[in-house]
């Protein structure tokens, strides 16, 4: 399959008056169309920085990022960030409104998504009338409304309690799969990464370099929750955990 995204020797330096910080150093990786990739690494290693680079909010200090797609990236954050003063429908159409694309066709697409993913009954409600899991689903549909080719998920479940997290994780995964989107998930939760991703990129401490890329060879048709019950699941956990722990040791 063709590459949709390629990082070519990408580095990024954060500048402040007293210092400069090399956040990521000569990063190389590529992501194929339709792939679900997780990026894991110790906290503060620049995972979120990578997402900002992909979305174009940050520009690399050196190196090249190639994106083979016309449509922009869609972001999904830790918190749902729904606007309390807007109804669910108005929240979902926010992006279209900003880009002046509130066409009948696009509205129909949103209605379609809402029906398909069970939020059609809530469209006239306000966010504070919905549960945390439901809000996160609305946030995903708000992102999908702009038809992005690449979804950037920045720890999208870490604000939810454990039970809800497993449900929403399944939920989001199914939606992404059925819409055939490319997704990049940033997380520090190794279980979450293994249960959702096709491939896991392990980063080192700052300045971030790719330490290892692990192909997850679990049945692609299983949901994240079902994957957690697979025999090989723990094997992958071991590999990744050791990789990260070794990093801690070496530096301390």
């Amino acid at each position: 399959m063709e590459n949709i995204l390629k990082f070519d020797n990408v580095s990024l330096i954060y500048h402040s008056l007293n210092s400069e910080t090399l956040a990521i150093k000569s990063l190389n990786f590529e992501i194929k169309k339709g792939e679900f990739v997780a990026i894991v690494g110790p906290s503060g290693c620049g995972k979120t920085t990578i997402l900002s680079l992909i979305s174009g909010i940050l520009k690399p200090s050196s190196g090249k990022i190639t994106i083979n797609s016309d449509n922009k990236c869609g972001y999904m954050f830790q918190k749902d960030h729904l606007f309390n003063w807007r109804t669910i429908f108005k929240n979902i159409t926010l992006g279209l409104e900003l880009q002046k694309k509130r066409t009948d066709e696009n509205i129909a697409y949103i209605k379609d998504l809402s029906n398909k993913y069970g939020i059609a009954d809530f469209l006239n409600r306000y966010p504070n009338q919905l549960s945390g899991g439901m809000k996160q689903r609305v946030a995903l549909i708000r992102t999908l409304a702009l038809k992005p080719d690449i979804l950037l998920l920045d720890e999208p479940f870490s604000a939810l309690d454990f039970q809800t997290r497993l449900d929403v994780c399944d939920d989001v995964w199914k939606i992404i799969k059925s819409e055939q989107k490319t997704a990049i998930l940033v997380t520090h939760d190794i279980h979450e990464a293994i249960s959702m991703a096709d491939r896991i990129i392990i980063l080192s401490k700052r300045p971030a370099v790719v330490k290892k890329i692990v192909e997850i060879d679990l049945d692609k048709n299983l949901t994240p929750f079902q994957r957690r019950e697979q025999e090989n699941f723990l094997k992958y956990f071991d590999i990744i955990w050791k990789e990260l722990a070794y990093d801690e040791e070496k530096h301390s």
């Binding site: 900002s52 979305s55 909010i57 922009k72 990236c73 869609g74 972001y75 954050f77 830790q78 918190k79 960030h81 606007f83 926010l94 992006g95 900003l98 880009q99 702009l146």
Partner: peptide, 14 residues
């Protein structure tokens, strides 16, 4: 205003 909300708006092209 929440920085992430601003980032969200920017990522949607505001």
């Amino acid at each position: 205003c929440d920085k992430d909300k601003i980032l969200l708006m920017q990522s949607m092209g505001a």
